[in-house]
Nucleic acid binder design. Structure first.
Lengths: 183, 183
DNA sequence: ACAGTCTCTGACCGATCGGTCAGTTAGCGT
DNA sequence: ACGCTAACTGACCGATCGGTCAGAGACTGT
């Protein structure tokens, strides 16, 4: 969807229906014929990604708390961002400002649910922040890959690197610190 | 500045002068008396943070490439985000959409300069992405600390945790992998 | 040939946007 | 008491916003 790219790039408030119509090669009226309002357009654009995110969260919460579960979530999350990078970009940094839009409220609820899960299952402040940095950073990274200079890597290389980094951050593998801890 | 908080929360395009004036307890005309335009207001709000970021980048580029230098940059960066979290939030995820605003162009140049530095001084894709995730994630984390559930930690604890995490991500300490590499 | 439907459009609407301007108020030096 | 200036305001402006509406084409089944 063309509108989605603009919403993610220029912001929902900063994107006019006129501009969306121009980019689509249609008139504004025509856009409003297919989507009864700007809000409906937003909803159609990001609803699938929210559905998918909900699935991932459901799966996460229904799994036991172990390394395999965390790794599985992590890979699902990376694939999610790879597939829905613009949508993720949208409700990560426009979500808080678009309250009262039903579909955005759903997204915000999911973000809070994810944060709550990590809040409940971590003890130290640093551990909580690791989640924030990992998930927020991964999303930021992918959404701005095109904007920044370095890019043009095969998607599987990107995916592999992402999984590696997030695993380092979130999965208690046998790092030297953990080994010292005797974990 | 009151306007800054709104710009960061609701976006530049999504914040009207009327709303800023209301929050400030003034009339819109009065706001435009102090700042000749909305753009001037934005400039006044974020210019100091851009100046500071420029200092940090200058220092980074003038230092040799070693662990001490990288650690120093990292601490400066963390302190920067801690001090200018709303500003950082602004030009991190509104910067690309606000081109042709001079002060934002400066900020975008700095982001590109930072990305270019890491692009030039890293080899693997994963290494580049570590920078993106670390810096973007740290900025995201701090800017949304209030929005998410977990917070209310003393600032020095937050700072310490941030420095730890970014060090893990960016500074080539003696991890098991590096030891295996014989680095 | 006709009616129906789907897609699309320009003209138009009220609301709100950023910004201008004439004028009011309060404080200060003289 | 006076004039000067800084701070502030409401009324107003053109532009643009999201959204409505009557109608124009194109295509279908009959």
């Amino acid at each position: 969807m063309i509108a989605l790219t603009e919403f993610a790039a220029a912001g929902y408030a900063g994107t006019s229906l006129h501009r969306i119509a121009d980019l689509a090669g249609l008139s504004k009226s025509s856009v409003l014929y297919h989507f009864s309002s700007k809000e409906t357009l937003l909803e159609a654009a990001i609803a699938p990604s929210i559905d998918r995110m909900e699935e991932i969260l459901d799966a996460l919460e229904s799994r036991p708390l172990n390394v395999e579960s965390r790794t599985a979530f992590l890979e699902e999350f990376v694939d999610f961002i790879l597939q829905y990078r613009r949508e993720a970009h949208m409700f990560i940094n426009q979500g808080p400002s678009l309250v009262d839009v039903p579909v955005i409220d759903r997204a915000n609820d999911l973000v809070r649910r994810l944060a709550g899960y990590f809040d409940a299952n971590t003890s130290s402040v640093e551990e909580k922040m690791r989640f924030g940095i990992a998930l927020g950073g991964a999303a930021y990274m992918l959404c701005t890959l095109d904007t920044l200079g370095f890019e043009a890597s095969p998607i599987d290389v990107t995916r592999g690197a992402l999984v590696n980094i997030l695993t380092d951050l979130l999965v208690p593998v046998e790092t030297s610190a953990d080994q010292a801890n005797g974990t």
